[in-house]
Design a protein around this nucleic acid. Structure first.
Length: 378
DNA sequence: ATGTCC
């Protein structure tokens, strides 16, 4: 507890222990956000890393101004965990991979009724529904590897005999369009509470949250259909969003950018594709602005990954991981950018959260098959 | 992050 929450400067704190990898640039960006007008307090999570201007892996609480740029372009991005009926024993990964094929194309018209039942308002981005996107987005089959609270895990309907499916995706081009339109009109000055422009942004933001949740559900359903399996949602939690909140007795806006809510029940904190993920029960705590790390967090910039790894690993080697899992990623640049080496160790991130008393571990999940993108093969 | 830069 003692030194697991660092205070680099007034109004800025970072949840970290000695071996948490935190870049100086990310702290600088955090301090920049702390100086925005109306900003009350900012907290860096242990997966904090530099972003484009603003850091990723952080929560920001402001009183009178709302800052859409802090939420970023992927409004509503989050993690959905699905239970499946795929037997974990006697796994044939080749068969799973073959059945899965490519799920990058827009959904087939056969999905029209399923999409219509979601009752989403028209956005012009319907073609993106059911697709994962790029960057750090993925869909991953996982096995329950270690259980730390049998009763809690059983109550969630999760067991060792069946695989889980974790989907990390967001609002695709919709959130991007909403932020672009906002920045074109207001720059980075933010929006005054109560104004018409603020209300309009919040409307669009709500639309993006719905779209992103629907997208994760459709991705999971589409994968399960291909795998000739079925499943159900266990968790779906957003980590890029802004919401009204009361913090330190003040009413204001709680922005989360790559920060998972700690007041919305159990969540998964995923490691890289070659690392474990943890199912945790959060402890809602104002010190962390009711937030947790949303993953391991980048350690290397995307642009440096290929140079650092291409001599060490072939593309074929990168399709297998140290934990015995398979990676489907036909994008030559992305396979290096998302290599396990490019990410912090998930144990160091979770250790920092535990040291700060912010989570209780429920289970450790092991990756089995990570889907990023596939060029061909229905 | 992005129907990813014209």
């Amino acid at each position: 507890m003692g030194n697991s929450i660092r205070i680099p400067s007034d109004g800025v704190s970072v949840i970290a222990v000695d071996d948490t990898w935190i870049e100086g640039k990310a702290i600088q960006q955090l301090e920049t956000t702390a100086r925005l007008p109306g900003m009350h307090r900012v907290v860096g999570m242990p997966d904090l890393h530099p972003g484009r201007g603003y850091p990723v892996g952080a929560a920001f609480f402001s009183t009178n101004r709302l800052y859409p740029a802090l939420v970023g372009n992927d409004i509503g991005c989050g993690m959905a965990l699905w239970r499946t009926d795929i037997a974990a024993a006697k796994l044939n990964i080749d068969k799973l991979e073959k059945r899965l094929g490519s799920i990058d194309a827009p959904l087939d018209p056969a999905w029209n009724d399923v999409v219509a039942a979601l009752d989403l308002p028209p956005t012009g981005h319907e073609r993106a529904l059911g697709t994962i996107g790029g960057g750090n987005h993925f869909a991953e089959l996982q096995a329950l590897d270690e259980c730390y609270d049998d009763d809690a895990v059983a109550r969630m309907g999760i067991d060792r005999r069946h695989l889980l499916l974790l989907v990390h995706s967001g609002s695709r081009g919709l959130g991007e369009a909403i932020l672009r339109d906002h920045v074109a009109r207001h720059g980075h000055a933010g929006l005054e509470r109560g104004g018409a422009d603020c209300a309009q942004y919040l409307d669009r933001h709500a639309q993006a949250l719905r779209f992103a949740r629907a997208n994760r559900s459709l991705i999971a359903q589409r994968m399960l259909m291909r795998l000739r399996a079925s499943g159900s949602t266990a968790i779906d939690v957003d980590h890029n969003l802004v919401a009204p909140a009361i913090v330190d007795g003040l009413a204001g806006w709680l922005h989360r950018k790559g920060a998972t809510p700690s007041d919305a029940g159990p969540v998964v904190i995923p490691g890289s594709r070659g690392d474990y993920s943890y199912l945790v029960e959060p402890v809602a705590d104002a010190r962390s602005l009711y937030s947790l790390a949303h993953g391991a967090g980048r350690k290397w910039m995307r642009t440096e990954c290929k140079d650092r790894l291409s001599a060490r690993y072939s593309v074929a080697q990168l399709a297998r991981t140290a934990l015995g899992s398979r990676v489907v990623c036909d994008d030559r640049a992305l396979i290096y950018e998302e290599a396990p080496e490019a990410y912090k160790s998930i144990d160091s991130v979770v250790a920092a959260l535990r040291a700060a008393g912010l989570v209780r571990l429920l289970a450790r999940l092991r990756p089995v098959l990570t889907y990023k993108t596939r060029e061909c093969c229905e």
